[in-house]
Simulated scan of single mutants.
Amino acid sequence: MATRAGGVLTQLGGGYMDGGLDGCSVSGVVGRYEPWSVNYTHHERTYTSMHMALACDLFAQTSEANLLHRLGDPEWLDGVVARLAPTPRWTPFPGRRVSEIIGLLGT
């Protein structure tokens, strides 16, 4: 998605993901008003739309549970990612899987 061809394919595919150079980034707000963004364009392989949905759910649910500090804990995050990565592409409710894993690994 970070290349011109990837952006075109994303748009032609009719997906809801953003394409182009900003399509491979996660953004948010640090503190009250400071925008934050990180690109993830240099990974060994591409991410599926399910992986992106799981990442979005993970960020949202850790935020809602006041657990964002856990994203900075490498052992906890490795455990979450190891359990989420094999999630099949067509899982009907990926958010449920995220909440189950967060509950399993605890705070």
Rank of each mutant, 00 (worst) to 15 (best):
P35F: 01
A82P: 08
G20D: 04
E75S: 15
R83Y: 07
L58V: 06
Y16R: 05
D22I: 07
R83P: 10
R83F: 08
Q61D: 08
H43D: 12
A5T: 08
H43E: 08
V81A: 09
H51V: 05
A55E: 04
P35R: 02
F93H: 04
M17P: 03
L67K: 05
F59L: 15
T41L: 07
A82T: 14
L21D: 03
P92R: 06
G72Q: 13
L9E: 13
V26E: 05
P88V: 05
D73A: 06
E34Q: 12
P74K: 06
L21C: 10
F59Q: 04
S63K: 11
P86A: 02
M52Q: 10
E44Q: 13
E75P: 09
H51T: 09
V30C: 14
S25P: 10
S49K: 00
T3H: 05
D78Q: 15
A60P: 05
A2D: 06
T107I: 08
V81F: 09
H69C: 10
L12H: 11
L68N: 15
F59G: 11
L12S: 12
G103T: 11
G20S: 07
R83G: 08
L77M: 15
Q61Y: 13
D78V: 05
T62L: 12
G13I: 00
V29F: 09
M17E: 06
T48D: 11
S49Q: 02
G106N: 13
G7H: 03
L54Q: 10
T10V: 08
A2E: 02
L12E: 11
F93C: 05
G103H: 06
T91E: 12
P35H: 01
G72S: 14
G103C: 02
G14S: 09
S25I: 02
M1E: 00
R97W: 01
L12T: 09
V98I: 09
Q11F: 06
T41A: 13
I102D: 02
T10I: 01
P94L: 01
M1S: 03
D18M: 07
R96Y: 11
G79N: 06
P94M: 01
R45Q: 15
T46P: 12
A5K: 07
R32C: 04
Y47P: 01
E100L: 10
N66D: 14
Y33F: 14
H43Y: 10
P74N: 08
T10F: 00
V98T: 05
E44Y: 12
C56W: 00
Y47Q: 02
G72T: 12
A53H: 01
M52W: 01
E64C: 08
G31V: 11
G7L: 02
P35Q: 00
E34L: 10
E100Q: 15
L104A: 14
L105E: 03
M50E: 01
T3M: 03
E100D: 14
G103N: 10
V8K: 10
L105F: 14
A82F: 07
L68A: 15
G23Q: 00
H42F: 15
G79V: 04
H51K: 09
D57E: 12
A60M: 10
L54P: 13
F93A: 04
E64P: 05
Q11Y: 04
W76T: 04
C56R: 02
L105T: 12
A55P: 10
G72W: 03
G79W: 01
